[in-house]
Design a protein around this nucleic acid. Sequence first.
DNA 1: CTGAAAGCGCTTACAG
DNA 2: CTGAAAGCGCTTACAG
Lengths: 347, 347
Amino acid sequence: MQDQRSRKKTRITSLDIAHRAGVSQATVSRVLAGSPLVNAETRRRVEQAVRELNYKVDRHASSLRTQRAGTLALLLFEDPTQDDSHINPFFLSMLGSITRACARHGHDLLVSFQQLSDDWHADYEDSMKADGLILLGYGDYLAYESKLARLVEQGTHFVRWGQVEQGQPGISIGCDNLAGGALAGRHLVERGRRRVAFLGDASSRFPEFFARYQGCDAALREAGLAMLPELQVDADSTEQAGVDAANALLARGLPFDAVFAASDLIAIGAMHALKQAGLRIPEDVAVVGFDGTSMACYANPPLTTVVQDTSKAGELLVQTLLQLVREQPAQSVMLQPVLEVRASSGG
Amino acid sequence: MQDQRSRKKTRITSLDIAHRAGVSQATVSRVLAGSPLVNAETRRRVEQAVRELNYKVDRHASSLRTQRAGTLALLLFEDPTQDDSHINPFFLSMLGSITRACARHGHDLLVSFQQLSDDWHADYEDSMKADGLILLGYGDYLAYESKLARLVEQGTHFVRWGQVEQGQPGISIGCDNLAGGALAGRHLVERGRRRVAFLGDASSRFPEFFARYQGCDAALREAGLAMLPELQVDADSTEQAGVDAANALLARGLPFDAVFAASDLIAIGAMHALKQAGLRIPEDVAVVGFDGTSMACYANPPLTTVVQDTSKAGELLVQTLLQLVREQPAQSVMLQPVLEVRASSGG
DNA sequence: CTGAAAGCGCTTACAG
DNA sequence: CTGAAAGCGCTTACAG
């Protein structure tokens, strides 16, 4: 009666349950799979035995038989940063929401950090570890794209988080970065800013950042202004890169009254450097970030930022991937960001 | 020859490799398991076939046979915070290092967010999804402890991150919080501070925070001072809790010249509130945090903090858990923290 | 509604 | 050093 207390020497199998409930092992399996073809009373007996012996279906046996893993894999790409303490908080927030979305959909989540250069391809799906892949992370898109094409060719189920564009291999879920950039640009124009610097790569290698830049430019043009190439400085998404980019911008000696940073991390690093240089935020320079990470709220001054809804994004990524796994039609989607105005741009 | 290009209609099995290499399926398995009992030439032929067909061992079949999953599970506990964007950056940094440590040891990592109240227990190991569990997160330790005891009773393999103390159920890896608190206390004393407030729970329900408090107190006593209970305010590890705790402290109207926060998040929130109240940091109040998250460095002013080495912690957690899984002896370990001095305490 | 049986793709004694 | 065979614990047609 208390045998579940024995220090798991012998695994409890569906056969044990079958004996205890006085049915066949097949019936036990049916009950646990929720088959409707089981008598209510039989079901009750089996469920009781399952509870009493604390039985859990063996995932490997089940997966081997059904050829489905019930697991998704999240591959997080990071470029150079090997330092654990500097993982991009935006991606970590995504990780949280993806984890929860997986749980809601009854799937487990394998998490793995990858170098973009690695030879990962469809390893997870090939070895049946996961039914599909979620790809997340920045990195040179040009290098990335050929890998995506390869995944498509192999028939791997995957969804990518990133800039959504025509003709991309596979399916992408992403923020409408063009709209997000426009939100930032329009806001700065309204606040009377005319010379907006952009900190972040603005090339097709980094399509998300590029779209933010272009969106901001479009908004300025509506007002008869424009982004100035001489006020753009490359930066990847780290605080240190933000510091460096702001310093490089200052070194150029050109006037500017606003900074639109491609990410919150860049913005926070930039604010640090700008204040160091004796500039007042927002009086001398208005600063707007992107992502809506929690640190924006506690930055000094609190950072105006374009917020991406990571909860919705995670749910959509998982949902879309599961559609692909089930061979159902699915499509790329862009999520609309929202501007959160705080003191860094004049409140 | 190019059949690997076919959109994975039929799975490639070890039998396919066997045919192609002209050996038995058992030999293929031996080669892939790295068995030394294989002729070099035979091994070469098999490896070539594996490469040509891009074969990957089916993890479920393998695990079913060996009764080992090759996977560890990370259970992250969060208390109230359901909001993805507010996941504790310290734990996320740990997640990064654990992921990497798993990869180094050839294991996959399942990640799951749990409520402390949930009925998780040994579910992962019972269903063979994981060989062992890593438990990470804050929460009321008293509620936690009985669950740990239950895991031990069930013979589940697990390692917990947290305060290391005598007589705890199972094995724990943690920071030497007492030493960390002493580092902070000694530093503040050296800077001439006499009335140190503590923001964070300081009870046996939160043993990590409590040990930090006690360590700081011990350091003050070495200098003929002491922590004052009236300068302690409860707070869990969020920025908002830091804001609230600092405001509560200010409302008491008692003098204090330093704040030791139980975590960086609390410290950053507290600095926010203190500045709001017109206090200068560090002139009026020195602030020291705990964790060594990357945001400490870019806080305003940059935050002095007790740094925990998350890389080492992740490696040790994984290593220790794998020892348990292999039924090898293992023991609890405390890691020594390091003080990183920045401007918030006078530089 | 239920049971007997096949088989998912491996690993590993066992025999040679 | 290699092969034939058993069996890990399920799920699911098939037959009743």
